[in-house]
Amino acid sequence: MLICENLSFSIDGHKLFSNIDFKIKKEKDLLITGPSGIGKTTLLSVLCGLQIPTEGSIRYNDISLYSLSENKIDEFRGKQLGIVFQSFNLINAFTIKQNLQIANTAEGSQDTDNLYDLLERVGLADKSHIKVSNLSIGEKQRVAVARAFIGQPKWIFCDEPTSSLDDKNTDIIANLIKEESLRHKASLILITHDKRVQSILNFNEILRLGEVL
Protein backbone atom coordinates (compact mmCIF):
# COMPACT_ATOMS: atom_id res chain seq x y z
CA MET A 1 0.00 0.00 0.00
CA LEU A 2 1.13 3.55 -0.81
CA ILE A 3 0.08 6.11 1.77
CA CYS A 4 0.60 9.85 1.36
CA GLU A 5 -0.13 12.02 4.34
CA ASN A 6 -0.28 15.80 4.49
CA LEU A 7 2.09 16.15 1.54
CA SER A 8 3.19 19.70 0.70
CA PHE A 9 5.79 21.19 -1.56
CA SER A 10 7.09 24.76 -1.82
CA ILE A 11 9.57 26.42 -4.13
CA ASP A 12 11.18 29.67 -2.90
CA GLY A 13 8.37 30.12 -0.35
CA HIS A 14 5.66 29.59 -2.97
CA LYS A 15 3.43 26.61 -2.21
CA LEU A 16 3.05 24.43 -5.26
CA PHE A 17 0.69 22.00 -3.54
CA SER A 18 -0.23 21.25 0.03
CA ASN A 19 -2.04 18.81 2.33
CA ILE A 20 -2.31 15.99 -0.16
CA ASP A 21 -3.56 12.75 1.35
CA PHE A 22 -4.30 9.53 -0.44
CA LYS A 23 -3.94 5.77 -0.16
CA ILE A 24 -3.51 3.27 -2.96
CA LYS A 25 -4.03 -0.36 -2.18
CA LYS A 26 -1.99 -3.12 -3.76
CA GLU A 27 -2.63 -3.53 -7.50
CA LYS A 28 -4.99 -0.53 -7.53
CA ASP A 29 -4.39 2.46 -9.81
CA LEU A 30 -4.41 6.23 -9.38
CA LEU A 31 -4.91 8.90 -11.99
CA ILE A 32 -3.49 12.35 -11.20
CA THR A 33 -5.02 15.18 -13.19
CA GLY A 34 -5.10 18.92 -12.99
CA PRO A 35 -4.25 22.02 -14.97
CA SER A 36 -0.74 22.71 -16.22
CA GLY A 37 1.71 24.12 -13.68
CA ILE A 38 -0.24 22.82 -10.71
CA GLY A 39 2.64 20.52 -9.69
CA LYS A 40 1.66 17.12 -11.04
CA THR A 41 5.19 16.30 -12.25
CA THR A 42 6.68 17.61 -9.01
CA LEU A 43 4.27 15.42 -7.03
CA LEU A 44 5.37 12.42 -9.08
CA SER A 45 9.03 13.30 -8.38
CA VAL A 46 8.26 13.52 -4.69
CA LEU A 47 6.45 10.17 -4.76
CA CYS A 48 9.45 8.58 -6.53
CA GLY A 49 11.97 9.96 -4.03
CA LEU A 50 13.54 12.36 -6.51
CA GLN A 51 12.54 15.49 -4.62
CA ILE A 52 12.07 15.91 -0.88
CA PRO A 53 8.64 17.25 0.14
CA THR A 54 8.43 20.35 2.29
CA GLU A 55 6.07 18.57 4.61
CA GLY A 56 4.29 15.25 4.95
CA SER A 57 5.22 11.63 4.58
CA ILE A 58 5.10 8.87 2.02
CA ARG A 59 4.94 5.23 3.02
CA TYR A 60 5.30 2.24 0.77
CA ASN A 61 3.85 -0.58 2.89
CA ASP A 62 5.85 -0.28 6.08
CA ILE A 63 8.70 1.78 4.58
CA SER A 64 8.65 5.51 5.24
CA LEU A 65 10.40 6.79 2.10
CA TYR A 66 11.95 10.01 3.39
CA SER A 67 13.14 8.50 6.64
CA LEU A 68 15.54 6.45 4.51
CA SER A 69 19.01 7.74 3.62
CA GLU A 70 19.43 9.13 0.10
CA ASN A 71 21.29 5.99 -0.98
CA LYS A 72 18.54 3.77 0.40
CA ILE A 73 15.94 5.88 -1.43
CA ASP A 74 17.92 5.38 -4.68
CA GLU A 75 18.11 1.63 -4.05
CA PHE A 76 14.40 1.47 -3.18
CA ARG A 77 13.52 3.35 -6.37
CA GLY A 78 15.70 0.99 -8.43
CA LYS A 79 14.12 -2.15 -6.98
CA GLN A 80 10.49 -1.21 -6.27
CA LEU A 81 9.52 1.62 -8.64
CA GLY A 82 9.25 1.88 -12.40
CA ILE A 83 9.06 5.37 -13.90
CA VAL A 84 8.03 6.53 -17.37
CA PHE A 85 9.11 10.15 -17.64
CA GLN A 86 7.37 12.69 -19.84
CA SER A 87 10.64 13.33 -21.65
CA PHE A 88 11.49 9.58 -21.59
CA ASN A 89 14.90 10.14 -19.92
CA LEU A 90 16.63 7.55 -22.06
CA ILE A 91 20.40 7.51 -22.63
CA ASN A 92 20.59 8.56 -26.28
CA ALA A 93 24.13 7.24 -26.82
CA PHE A 94 23.03 3.75 -25.79
CA THR A 95 21.12 1.21 -27.83
CA ILE A 96 17.63 0.09 -26.83
CA LYS A 97 19.08 -3.06 -25.30
CA GLN A 98 21.74 -1.14 -23.38
CA ASN A 99 19.13 1.21 -21.92
CA LEU A 100 17.23 -1.78 -20.59
CA GLN A 101 20.40 -3.53 -19.46
CA ILE A 102 21.55 -0.52 -17.42
CA ALA A 103 18.16 -0.46 -15.68
CA ASN A 104 18.53 -4.19 -15.06
CA THR A 105 21.99 -3.57 -13.57
CA ALA A 106 20.67 -0.80 -11.34
CA GLU A 107 18.03 -3.17 -10.07
CA GLY A 108 20.74 -5.77 -9.45
CA SER A 109 19.44 -8.38 -11.87
CA GLN A 110 21.25 -10.16 -14.67
CA ASP A 111 18.05 -11.71 -16.06
CA THR A 112 18.15 -11.07 -19.82
CA ASP A 113 15.12 -13.28 -20.58
CA ASN A 114 12.81 -10.69 -19.04
CA LEU A 115 14.60 -7.98 -21.04
CA TYR A 116 13.99 -9.68 -24.40
CA ASP A 117 10.47 -10.65 -23.37
CA LEU A 118 9.67 -6.98 -22.62
CA LEU A 119 11.22 -5.81 -25.89
CA GLU A 120 9.13 -8.32 -27.75
CA ARG A 121 5.99 -7.16 -25.99
CA VAL A 122 6.64 -3.52 -26.93
CA GLY A 123 7.47 -4.59 -30.50
CA LEU A 124 11.11 -3.57 -30.49
CA ALA A 125 12.91 -6.92 -30.21
CA ASP A 126 14.23 -6.65 -33.78
CA LYS A 127 15.52 -3.11 -33.12
CA SER A 128 17.31 -3.77 -29.85
CA HIS A 129 20.70 -2.93 -31.37
CA ILE A 130 19.60 0.53 -32.61
CA LYS A 131 20.71 3.63 -30.74
CA VAL A 132 17.90 5.48 -28.99
CA SER A 133 18.88 8.73 -30.76
CA ASN A 134 17.82 7.12 -34.03
CA LEU A 135 14.31 6.15 -32.86
CA SER A 136 11.01 7.88 -33.49
CA ILE A 137 9.09 9.50 -30.60
CA GLY A 138 6.68 6.57 -30.45
CA GLU A 139 9.52 4.05 -30.32
CA LYS A 140 11.28 6.02 -27.58
CA GLN A 141 8.06 6.05 -25.61
CA ARG A 142 7.82 2.27 -25.93
CA VAL A 143 11.44 1.85 -24.78
CA ALA A 144 10.69 4.04 -21.76
CA VAL A 145 7.68 1.87 -20.92
CA ALA A 146 9.67 -1.34 -21.34
CA ARG A 147 12.45 0.03 -19.13
CA ALA A 148 9.97 0.95 -16.40
CA PHE A 149 8.88 -2.67 -16.12
CA ILE A 150 12.40 -4.10 -15.87
CA GLY A 151 12.92 -5.70 -12.49
CA GLN A 152 9.18 -6.27 -12.00
CA PRO A 153 8.45 -3.13 -9.92
CA LYS A 154 5.45 -2.99 -7.62
CA TRP A 155 4.62 0.64 -8.39
CA ILE A 156 4.63 2.17 -11.84
CA PHE A 157 4.68 5.96 -12.28
CA CYS A 158 3.91 7.48 -15.67
CA ASP A 159 4.09 11.20 -16.45
CA GLU A 160 2.07 12.16 -19.53
CA PRO A 161 3.16 9.00 -21.33
CA THR A 162 1.23 9.83 -24.49
CA SER A 163 1.63 13.62 -24.66
CA SER A 164 3.51 13.58 -27.94
CA LEU A 165 1.81 10.63 -29.61
CA ASP A 166 -0.84 10.34 -32.30
CA ASP A 167 -4.07 8.41 -31.68
CA LYS A 168 -2.73 5.11 -32.94
CA ASN A 169 0.39 5.22 -30.80
CA THR A 170 -1.57 6.52 -27.81
CA ASP A 171 -3.72 3.38 -27.97
CA ILE A 172 -0.67 1.17 -28.25
CA ILE A 173 1.18 2.79 -25.33
CA ALA A 174 -1.87 3.02 -23.06
CA ASN A 175 -2.75 -0.63 -23.67
CA LEU A 176 0.84 -1.61 -23.16
CA ILE A 177 1.02 0.14 -19.79
CA LYS A 178 -2.26 -1.46 -18.75
CA GLU A 179 -1.22 -4.95 -19.83
CA GLU A 180 2.22 -4.76 -18.27
CA SER A 181 1.00 -3.39 -14.95
CA LEU A 182 -1.62 -6.16 -14.80
CA ARG A 183 0.95 -8.79 -15.75
CA HIS A 184 3.40 -7.56 -13.12
CA LYS A 185 0.61 -7.07 -10.54
CA ALA A 186 1.85 -3.50 -10.10
CA SER A 187 -0.03 -0.41 -8.95
CA LEU A 188 -0.17 2.32 -11.57
CA ILE A 189 0.08 6.02 -10.74
CA LEU A 190 -0.37 8.04 -13.90
CA ILE A 191 -0.48 11.71 -14.79
CA THR A 192 -2.34 12.60 -17.94
CA HIS A 193 -4.74 15.08 -19.46
CA ASP A 194 -5.49 12.66 -22.23
CA LYS A 195 -9.09 11.46 -22.08
CA ARG A 196 -8.28 8.59 -24.44
CA VAL A 197 -5.78 7.20 -21.92
CA GLN A 198 -8.16 7.71 -19.03
CA SER A 199 -10.82 5.70 -20.84
CA ILE A 200 -8.46 2.86 -21.74
CA LEU A 201 -6.95 2.52 -18.27
CA ASN A 202 -10.15 2.85 -16.21
CA PHE A 203 -8.64 4.08 -12.92
CA ASN A 204 -9.79 3.05 -9.44
CA GLU A 205 -8.87 6.39 -7.87
CA ILE A 206 -8.53 9.90 -9.27
CA LEU A 207 -6.60 12.73 -7.65
CA ARG A 208 -7.55 16.12 -9.09
CA LEU A 209 -4.78 18.42 -7.99
CA GLY A 210 -6.53 21.70 -8.66
CA GLU A 211 -9.47 20.60 -6.56
CA VAL A 212 -7.39 19.47 -3.65
CA LEU A 213 -5.81 22.88 -3.34
Binding site: L50, N71, D74, I83, A106, E107
Partner: peptide, 14 residues
Protein backbone atom coordinates in the same frame (compact mmCIF):
# COMPACT_ATOMS: atom_id res chain seq x y z
CA UNK B 1 21.95 14.18 -17.93
CA UNK B 2 22.87 10.50 -18.41
CA UNK B 3 24.28 10.34 -14.89
CA UNK B 4 21.05 11.83 -13.54
CA UNK B 5 19.12 9.16 -15.46
CA UNK B 6 21.23 6.51 -13.77
CA UNK B 7 20.21 7.95 -10.40
CA UNK B 8 16.51 7.73 -11.37
CA UNK B 9 17.09 4.08 -12.26
CA UNK B 10 18.40 3.37 -8.77
CA UNK B 11 22.16 3.97 -9.02
CA UNK B 12 23.28 5.43 -5.70
CA UNK B 13 25.56 8.49 -5.37
CA UNK B 14 28.37 6.22 -4.20
Amino acid sequence: YDLAILRTLGFTRE
